[in-house]
Each structure stands twice: as C-alpha cells, then as structure tokens.
Amino acid sequence: QVASGNGDRDPLPPGWEIKIDPQTGWPFFVDHNSRTTTWNDPRVPSEGP
C-alpha cells in the first residue's frame, strides 16, 4: 500500500515545477501555466467533501 502524498517518483504535470521554501524548507509547487503556486501536490488527487 502506498501512502498518500508519496508520489515523488511520478512526473509532475506539464508546466509544473517543485521548489523549496527557503524559510520553512517545505516543498511547494509552481504552476507556470496559470502562474500560481500551491502547497498541494498536483499529482495527488484532492479529497472530495
């Protein structure tokens, strides 16, 4: 069983990049398509309500 969020081996969607926040050391994700950033890994399906 693979733990949720453990998709580091999967490629990011086109136009996405991983960067590290220098203050926290946490990775965040840059979507160059929409010029936005998020803490949520785009490779992990979001949980519904």
Results as ranks from 00 to 15, higher is better:
F28I: 02
N40V: 11
P42M: 00
S34I: 05
D8T: 11
P14W: 03
P14H: 01
R43K: 06
T37W: 05
K19D: 09
G15S: 02
I20V: 13
P22Q: 09
E17Q: 09
V2H: 05
H32M: 07
I20S: 09
P27D: 14
G5D: 15
H32N: 01
V44E: 04
Q23E: 12
R43D: 01
P42V: 09
F29S: 02
V30M: 11
G25H: 14
P22C: 00
D41Y: 06
P14V: 01
S34L: 08
S34P: 01
G48L: 09
G7Y: 13
H32P: 01
N40R: 11
I18K: 13
P42F: 02
P45V: 10
N6H: 12
N6R: 13
T36F: 05
K19R: 09
L12Q: 08
D8L: 08
R9E: 13
L12G: 10
S46E: 08
D21R: 05
G5Q: 15
G25D: 13
A3R: 07
P14N: 12
G48N: 14
F28Y: 14
S4C: 04
W39F: 08
P27L: 12
G48A: 06
P13Q: 01
P45C: 12
D31W: 00
G7V: 14
D31I: 03
G5S: 15
T24P: 02
G5W: 05
Q1T: 13
G5N: 15
T36L: 05
Q23N: 07
N6K: 15
P27Q: 13
Q1G: 15
T24I: 11
P11R: 14
D31H: 04
H32C: 06
T36I: 08
G5M: 12
V30P: 00
K19P: 03
E17P: 01
V30G: 04
E47T: 10
A3D: 13
G15Q: 00
D8K: 13
P14R: 11
P45M: 07
R43S: 05
V44R: 10
W16A: 05
Q1W: 14
D21W: 07
D10Q: 01
P13V: 01
V44K: 11
V2D: 12
T24K: 13
Q1Y: 15
G25S: 14
G15R: 06
P13W: 02
P11K: 14
P45G: 10
R35P: 07
W16P: 00
Q23P: 04
P11V: 14
F28A: 09
G5H: 15
D21C: 07
P11E: 13
F29P: 03
N6I: 12
D10C: 09
V30Y: 05
V2I: 14
V44F: 07
G15T: 02
D21F: 00
I18N: 13
F28S: 08
N33Y: 07
T24W: 09
L12K: 13
L12F: 10
P11A: 14
T36Q: 06
R9S: 11
V44N: 03
A3L: 12
E47M: 09
N40D: 10
W16T: 07
P22T: 14
S34H: 05
S46V: 12
N6Y: 12
T24Y: 07
S4W: 04
S4F: 05
P14K: 13
G7M: 13
P45Y: 11
N6P: 12
P45K: 10
S4T: 10
D41I: 08
W16R: 08
F29K: 00
P27E: 15
N33R: 04
V2R: 04
D41M: 03
P22E: 08
P13Y: 04
F29G: 06
D10P: 09
I18V: 12
T37V: 08
K19I: 01
D41W: 00
W16K: 13
N33D: 03
A3I: 07
S46Y: 14
D8W: 07
G48M: 14
P45R: 08
P42D: 04
D8P: 12
D10R: 08
Q1E: 14
Q1L: 08
V2N: 12
G5I: 15
S4A: 08
D21K: 05
P13A: 07
P11M: 15
D21H: 13
W39S: 06
F29Y: 08
P14D: 03
G48H: 08
P45A: 11
P11F: 12
E47Y: 06
P22V: 08
F28E: 07
P42E: 00
S34M: 07
S34D: 04
D8Y: 03
P22R: 12
K19Y: 00
I18E: 13
T24D: 00
E47L: 05
P11D: 10
I20K: 10
T37P: 09
G15F: 00
F28P: 00
E17W: 00
T36W: 00
D10L: 05
D10Y: 05
T36K: 06
I20H: 10
A3Y: 11
R35G: 10
F28L: 13
Q1A: 14
D21E: 12
R35L: 04
H32Y: 04
G15E: 06
F29E: 09
